[in-house]
Each structure stands twice: as C-alpha cells, then as structure tokens.
Nucleic acid binder design. Structure first.
Lengths: 182, 182
DNA sequence: ACCTGAACACCGTTCAAGT
DNA sequence: ACCTGAACACCGTTCAAGT
C-alpha cells in the first residue's frame, strides 16, 4: 500500500481570486482575527506557504480582501446625480454599514486601504458633496469626515443602533450644509 | 559553581501598576501590536505566565492600559463650566488626540473600553453638550458622535493633519448647534 | 499568593527540494 | 511557476511543581 502522498507541483486549479474567496468566507464565518494564512490555505487545500505564490505577504491578502468588500457597495443609488444629495449619502452610508456589519471586525481592514474601490467610493462622495455646494477643498475634507463617521460608528457601536447612526449622519450633513451656505 | 537559577516564589516587588507601566512603555516605544504578555514579562523580569497572577488574561491587561491612557486626558480646561462649550470640546479633542498620536495603534484599545476614565470623559462631554442647549437624549447621541469623530479621525489619518481635524470638529459642532436651535 | 519550567496549540514566514 | 515538508521565531495560555 503505497502512501497516497500529495506531491509538490502545480495544480492550476487555484487563482488569486480563490484565495480571496476563502478569506472572505473566513471573515464572514469567524471574524477578522480568524482570517489567517493557515486557515485560508487549509480551506483551499494547499500548504500554508503555498499562499505566498499568490500574495507576497498577509498584508497584501488583507488589502485584497478589503477591496472585495468595498466592491460590493457602490451602485446606481449613490451615483445617480438626479437624486437629492442627502439621500445619496444616506444610501452610501447604509450600504457600507450593512457590508461591514455582515463581516465582524472588518472595519480595521479598511482603515489603511487605498485601492481602486476605495478611490471610487471617495470620488462618489466628492461629487455628492460638490452637488451640496461645497468647494473642492471642503468636499475633500467633508468626504473624509463622512468616511470617518461611518467607519467610527461601526467600530464603536456596542449594539446595532441604526437610529443613532442615522441621527449622526444627519447632524454631520447639517454641519456641512451650514458650511456650504456660509 | 552552583547554578544561580532564579527559584520560584514571591518577590513582592511587583504590582498590577508595574505591569501596566511596562505595557505603556512598550506601547509608546513599539506600538500596540508589540504589547505582548511575553514582552511585558520580559520587561519586568518575570516569566510570561507570572503575568497571569496579576491579570486574568491579555484582554484585561489591554483594558487597564486603555484606562491608563484615558486617565491623562481630563483636566480643568474641559471641566470648567465658565469656558465656552465649543472651546471645551476642542480642548478635549486636542488632548485625546495628542495622547493617542503619542501611542501608535492605541485607538483600537479604546474602542471597546468602558472603564471609569472612559465614563468620566463621556460625562464631561454630556455636560458640555447640555450647556450647548442639547436635551438629554441628543447630548448622549452627540457625545457618542464626538467620540466617534475623534477616534475615527486618528485611526484613518494618513498624516498628522491637524487642520483637517479642527475643521471636522467645527463642522460637527455646527451640526449639533443647528439641532439645538431647531 | 507568587513564581518557574515545560508544554500545548497556535501564528507568519523562509528555505530547500520536488514536479 | 506551483507546490510540499520542515523549520524558525514568535504568540497566548495552561499545568504541575517549588517557595
């Protein structure tokens, strides 16, 4: 009975995306601190160090994972310029919040992320705030502020307090409106 | 030459505070993810598992560490009711920000903290916002919102952008003022 | 109660080798 | 290029034992 040892060598069944899918599944099922290189490798059926064939290190995997999450957020409801600007911010905030709440601990994955999807969301916010009457500089500061509020609210929320969240967004938008009308 | 082995037994030279002092030193020198049980133990000169004589687990050490940080923030400039309420919020925000920037990665230590010092800061914010004309419910939501903004701003700041920070605080306070005057 | 050494069950990452 | 096994340098935590 020759041992059925899995021998080294290419399998061609895996891809960068397969790694990220496994990482996303671990994130949804177990939370951010259980997204490990070894856990991902185990889930896709390779040795832990084989992950380094696809990504240079764990930080790169987490960066890709953050981009996966952000890619699910943007849609017509935020980009349609005919809708009222406050509605568009509320829609973006709601969708981002829903995505983050579905993935425990995912907030910190987004904090240092600056990939294409992060930029797309920021660009959308910039155009919304321009519609609100803010100049370029104020729109940039305002977009950052909205991001901070969304990420911070979820990170510090003891319970899933939707009311508090909506109220906070409205106070912030009032502050930006006041600035636009200065 | 009898081996100078350190034998087990009480030393009576250590305390809970000595552990926290070591943790704070590691935090300031190396950042939050280098605050380890083994690193603390090494710094105070005991075996890693001896730390568990003083704290039940690492989470308890980090909780104590967060309280240490918060204990340095509050002073007269925030609690003096004769000062304008906006100045008092700016002062609190500035001090908290300075404390967090001096300790890399410390923001996440505060996110799930709810000790005496955290409550004291929240109580101060509540009374400031009451002075601003907010009712009890709005003051509670507003205090949470200010906390979120401070912690979030520091967590997401790419550079040490003091201007952006001050601007954000002012937009937020404008929003709260608008609500108070409704 | 306070401490030690040894161990357990994990990490991320590197290295040498096989296909 | 893609993969394996073994190893290295870490973690937090538990257990049995010594004072």
């Amino acid at each position: 009975m020759g041992a059925a040892v899995t021998r080294p060598g290419p399998r061609r069944t895996l891809s960068e995306q397969a790694i990220l899918d496994a990482a996303l599944a671990l994130l949804a099922e177990l939370g951010a601190d259980r997204v490990t290189i070894r856990g991902i490798a185990n889930r896709v059926g390779i040795a832990p160090n084989a992950v380094y064939t696809y990504f240079p290190d764990k930080a790169a995997v987490l960066h890709g994972l953050a981009e996966q999450l952000l890619g699910r957020v943007l849609d017509d409801r935020q980009t349609d310029a005919r809708r009222p600007w406050r509605d568009r911010v509320h829609s973006l905030a709601h969708d981002l919040r829903a995505e983050l709440l579905a993935h425990p601990g995912s907030v910190r994955l987004l904090l240092d992320n600056d990939g294409p999807n992060a930029r797309a969301i920021n660009a959308t916010l910039l155009s919304v705030l321009a519609d609100a009457g803010l100049d370029q500089d104020a729109a940039a500061r305002g977009a950052h502020l909205v991001n901070v509020l969304i990420l911070g609210s979820i990170a510090t929320a003891n319970q899933a307090a939707t009311d508090q969240f909506e109220w906070s967004i409205d106070r912030l938008l009032d502050g930006l409106s006041t600035y636009a009308a200065r």
